[in-house]
Amino acid sequence: MNNKRLEYIRQPRRGWFDLALGELWAYRDLLAALAWRNLTVRYKQSVIGIAWAILKPVLQMLVFSVVFGRLANLPSDGVPYPVFLYAGLLPWTYFSSAISSASGSLLAGGNMINKVYFPRMILPFSYLFTGLIDLLLAMAVLFGLMAWYRADMVFGPQMLLFPLFLLPAIVFAGGLSLWLCALAVRYRDIHHLVPYLLQVGMFVTPVVYAVQLLPARFQWILQLNPMTGVIEGFRWSLLGKPVEGWGMMGLGCALSVALLFAGMVYFRRVDRTLADIV
């Protein structure tokens, strides 16, 4: 029986590309448990509880509809502005809340990191899944809005494709979170920087406006942002809005995959001494 025993070897880690993905898979239940913890803890002792997941994007949608839709009168490709906006706010809210909570996850989880072994990548990753639950709840409002405005709904196979467009959002948020949370261990500056990054990020992503607002020769810059692809994909699959620039957006997705991979490499690097410095 001893031949079949697990064997753990503790020795100085070397090499760059030991990402320990198998271990990540072995701890998948922890990922689920932490994602669930993040969610329940957030809404404990609040009166309306998880309804906040719906209320927050709705309130934001109301404010932005007035400012950008009514006052600034931004075009929205024939779709009623609130519907157009909400379809963009959903993935953006997911992205920004995942980033802002995951970037501080290693510092917040210091006690766990110091006292027990588990693949540390699970900490930031757990927030990627917490946000998905919020997003799915808030989706309900989108369908309500579409019915209210009698938007030209495209009941067709392409509607089933919207979860597919979440993938690049998860990958991009995951990659960026790994970088930010690993850097935040050494540089608390990250903690102050993230809110501003996200604020700027929202305006270089077509959340409140359409890509076509920009002159055609600059649109490719916007399309390199992986979140542009996500939002355009959402609007295409749910609202039937035509999309241009698939090529550039594909490149954006490829970039986010590269960012995730590089993030994992850097994270594992920081991971070596994490318990000593957190």
Binding site: Y8, R10, P12, N114, V116, R272, T273
Partner: peptide
Amino acid sequence: KILAGITDPSSGRAVLRGRIASLL
């Protein structure tokens, strides 16, 4: 902490044969 895998040693090695639970 080294045996539990929480932190890596700087030199040398340790081999543990079996499932580990740490209660630090």
